[in-house]
Design a protein around this nucleic acid. Structure first.
Length: 795
RNA sequence: GCCCCCGUGGCGGAACUGGGAUACGCGCAGCACUUAGGAUGCUGUCUCGCAAGAGUUAGAGGUUCAAAUCCUCUCGGGGGCACCA
């Protein structure tokens, strides 16, 4: 028997497929299009990891199945190559990031090819290629031209270790997402993208797409929409007003004091009235110094200072109430000021307890004297007493002349980085003309070579030290001007790469509308759970914006989004270099071959769940594929019919096809194992049955399937075959086993024709000794019969 | 605190729409084959019981002829958000 020399076989087919152009997507083909997308990898120095294989194999299976179903499939690949690890490597070693990136992408390319993924390699993109980032810059300018990119002096999250400003999104509990250092606050002029202008569209768009529930929930959580009202409070003996946002206007009568954020502008404006201004000032200073973490720490003791001499008027009942400043009120959210209703809000309750402020209960519910945040009917609320709190929200808002508003937790996106390895922001600062976009003809603004990649100690990008880069003429007035030296965050290139795949070589546009119309939207996008808030939100934002500008054909870029679970090290801990438990894909491919690696990763467990690597488990998959090889070589594969295998095959085809769509790859594989186990018991396999089996195996183990396909004297690749159909008649067993229950307890079973009627089954069931024993002399009250399944005799 | 996902043998897990709980794989045990094997093949493998039988899907209750599946509560694990008014 021929030896299963997987190394030779896999090499052979990979070459052959490249020649045949198996992964090639054809623009404007008459076939129906299908666009599968995976998150393009960051080409790190460590090479491919097992997690990549899980995601890429899954979409490779889907893509290969779609091709067999007659679709014109686009399954592209590229490199998200800007980013800190490469830059830090450059800082440490002096190696040009371009050189490191080139080397790393070569390694990745080789590794991906060794796994037999059916990418369209002719559409490869690389975010660090000037031909690519020219368009990232151009797209940024579209935001700028619409007023959605602006520069603002803001408090940034500064990582003192990486010397980089971080987006809120990149700060995890007050620490840098990358290095873990504690983040400080710093004032800095930064480029911002106005994603908040799209909060509603980002939310609404979720209604029409097919994302996993948890993914939608995370997006909604991050946007954080909350409906409420804006109410105005008069300040006594003053023309000044205080606006507050509240989700509970129904509790207005219970507002017993006000709180401003320490940074609130009214604090300065009221300076003359505040008798304890010194105290107030020092509190404000201290609050400003606090890091975000200190300020928002869980269970933090409430602190605050009363603005003595200032009172506000509750518009509902005309009562004068004190005004405080406290850091539990955030300047950036709502109006930066609140009405405090201690009886019905935890934070206000804690604050009132600490500073001995009055608590007035205005909604019934809960225990007297305790906090009640639920609904109820109003009390102590004048003419609104007895009204339901839901209704009172609108009525009281109207009564005091407030207006309904909506607030979002989402903040604008800090788009500046003071780092080297990113796309230069294509803006020129001119003293007379202000911020001037670099004209299209001068794009791309190419990242200049530098001697030192280290960000400067003043916090500016290393580009600020390159005089020839910085000093330019203003494109408008031709006067002296300076180039922006900030670069874009590494989310930029990945916010639109999926559009470029439709038209990757276009030198005139980021992608032509004609091609985008053919390929978009993406039919299925799979990637990591770690990217379902930020990357997903950012790229949806870009796409929705571009749609509004008439530059892309669909508003939502992704019709369907799924996420795979992480692959953990043996024993269920995270894989990491320090633990020494990292599984290198190359070793697996070397020892077992690409097909075993692919099938094993799909078989490990439910696709969306985190799962531990198991060196023993891979042996089981190896046995399965090797046994498949043995059957192909040992069994008689011919004309003789075999009803049992024909029926089993029909069931297997159905199961595997359905499971791929559900991403239940592990059960798809287990059903193929069942088929192979059954085949082992037979002396001969009908050729048609075996051919169909190879076709459904092909997306999972493409090399082995093609090899065995050719063993059957087929000339063309199995990957050009059609996905097999099955005869539904074959799924119906002639005789089925119907379980007989008495009072819901299993008492035996009877073999009956699959379409047997109740009377016949009941008759057969009553003849069983176990059944008559269980029945005894009792009378049958009711019979429940589910055809082909079960009969339940109720006594 | 809020939101989402989840809890089934020694382990990973399966069970379509409420219809035979434990498919498939790992591990383990026995047997066979082999110069040899951490190879291969066969058989067995939820618990109690010699058996007939009974019990069992984190726990408690409920709906139903019938519940791993639906509902309520409790406990436990994972993830996201969080002084967001």
């Amino acid at each position: 028997m021929a030896k299963y020399d997987f190394k030779k076989i896999e090499k052979k087919w990979q070459k052959e497929w490249e020649k045949l152009g198996i992964g090639k997507a054809v623009d404007f083909s008459k076939k129906k299009k299908w666009y599968s997308l995976i998150e393009f990898p960051y080409p790190s120095g460590q090479g491919l990891h097992t997690g990549h294989i899980r995601s890429l194999t899954a979409m490779d299976i889907v893509s290969r199945k779609r091709r067999m179903e007659g679709y014109n499939v686009l399954y592209p690949i590229g490199w998200d190559a800007f980013g800190l690890p490469t830059e830090n490597y450059a800082i440490k070693t002096g190696v040009d990031p371009r050189v490191a990136t080139k080397k790393n992408t070569e390694t990745f390319r080789k590794q991906l090819k060794s796994l037999g993924f059916s990418f369209d390699w002719s559409r490869e993109v690389n975010t660090t290629d000037p031909k690519y980032y020219k368009w990232t810059q151009w797209l940024f300018l579209q935001f700028f031209k619409k007023g959605l990119a602006y520069k603002a002096e803001i408090d940034i999250n500064w990582c003192p270790n990486d010397k980089i400003g971080l987006a809120n999104e990149e700060v995890i509990a007050g620490h840098c997402e990358r290095c873990g250092a504690e983040v400080e606050k710093r004032k800095k002029a930064q480029w911002m993208l106005k994603i908040t202008a799209y909060a509603d569209k980002l939310l609404k768009g979720l209604e029409h797409v097919d994302y996993l529930d948890e993914i939608k929930a995370q997006q909604m959580n991050w946007i954080g929409r909350s409906e409420g009202a804006e109410l105005e409070f008069r300040i006594s003996n003053s023309a000044l007003r205080m606006k507050v946002f509240t989700t509970r206007p129904d509790t207005l009568f219970g507002a017993t004091y006000m709180v401003l954020a320490p940074e609130h502008e009214l604090v300065e404006k009221l300076k003359d009235k505040i008798s304890n201004f010194k105290e107030v000032e020092s509190y404000v200073k201290a609050a400003r110094k606090e890091t975000e973490e200190e300020r928002t720490a869980e269970n933090k003791e409430k602190t605050g200072v009363e603005l003595k001499g200032v009172t506000a008027v509750n518009p509902a009942n005309g009562k004068e109430i004190p005004v405080w400043i406290a850091d539990y009120v955030l300047a950036e959210y709502g109006t930066g000021a609140i009405m405090a209703v201690p009886a019905h809000d935890v934070r206000d309750f804690a604050f009132a307890k600490k500073f001995n402020l009055p608590v007035v209960r205005v909604v019934s519910g809960g225990m007297p004297g305790e906090l009640w945040e639920g609904k109820g009917s109003l009390m102590n609320s004048g003419k609104f007493d007895g009204m339901d709190s839901e209704q009172a929200k609108a009525e009281i808002t109207r009564f005091v002349g407030g207006k309904k508003t909506v607030n979002y937790h989402l903040r604008d996106w800090v788009f500046s980085r003071q780092r080297y390895w990113g796309e230069p922001i294509p803006i020129i600062h001119c003293e007379t003309c202000g911020y001037v976009p670099v004209p299209d003809k001068d794009l791309p603004v190419v990242l200049p070579p530098v001697k030192n990649y280290q960000p400067r100690d003043d916090g500016e990008s290393p580009l600020a030290s390159v005089a020839s880069f910085v000093n330019v003429r203003c494109p408008k007035c031709m006067g002296k001007a300076k180039r922006e030296t900030d670069t874009m965050p590494n989310w930029a290139g990945s916010s639109w790469y999926f559009l470029r795949y439709a038209d990757p070589k276009n030198a005139k546009e980021f992608a032509s509308m004609k091609k985008l119309k053919y390929w978009m939207p993406i039919d299925w996008y799979n990637g990591g759970m770690e990217h379902v808030t930020l990357h997903l939100l950012y790229s949806r934002f870009w796409n929705i914006f571009l749609h509004d500008q008439g530059l892309v054909p669909t508003s939502e870029p992704y019709r369907k989004r799924t996420a795979q679970g992480m692959i953990l090290g043996e024993g269920g801990v995270k894989m990491s270099k320090s633990r020494g438990n990292v599984v290198n894909p190359d070793t697996i491919v070397e020892a077992y071959g690409a097909d075993v690696a692919r099938v094993y990763e799909m078989f490990m467990g439910p696709f969306d769940r985190a799962i531990a690597w198991d060196a023993k488990g891979i042996e089981g998959v190896k046995r399965f594929l090797w046994r498949t090889w043995d059957i192909a070589h040992e069994k008689e594969i011919g004309k003789a019919r075999n009803e049992k295998l024909e029926r089993l095959l029909a069931a297997t085809v159905k199961k595997v096809g359905g499971d791929i769509e559900k991403m239940a790859f592990h059960t798809a594989i287990s059903s193929m194992m069942v088929f192979i186990n059954a085949t082992s018991d037979e002396a001969a396999v009908p050729a048609g049955v075996w051919s169909d089996f190879l076709k459904i195996l092909a997306p999972f183990a493409p090399h082995l399937a093609d090899e065995l396909w050719h063993l059957l004297k087929n000339k063309k690749s199995v990957h050009f075959e059609s996905w097999p159909a099955y005869d539904p008649e074959l799924l119906k067993e002639e005789a089925v086993e119907v379980v007989v229950q008495v009072n819901g307890k299993r008492r035996g079973s009877v073999m009956v024709p699959h379409d047997a009627e109740e009377e016949a089954v009941k008759g057969a069931a009553m003849k069983l000794e176990t059944v008559s024993a269980a029945l005894g002399s009792a009378k049958i009250k009711k019979v429940v019969y589910v055809k082909g399944r079960i009969i339940n005799l109720v006594v």
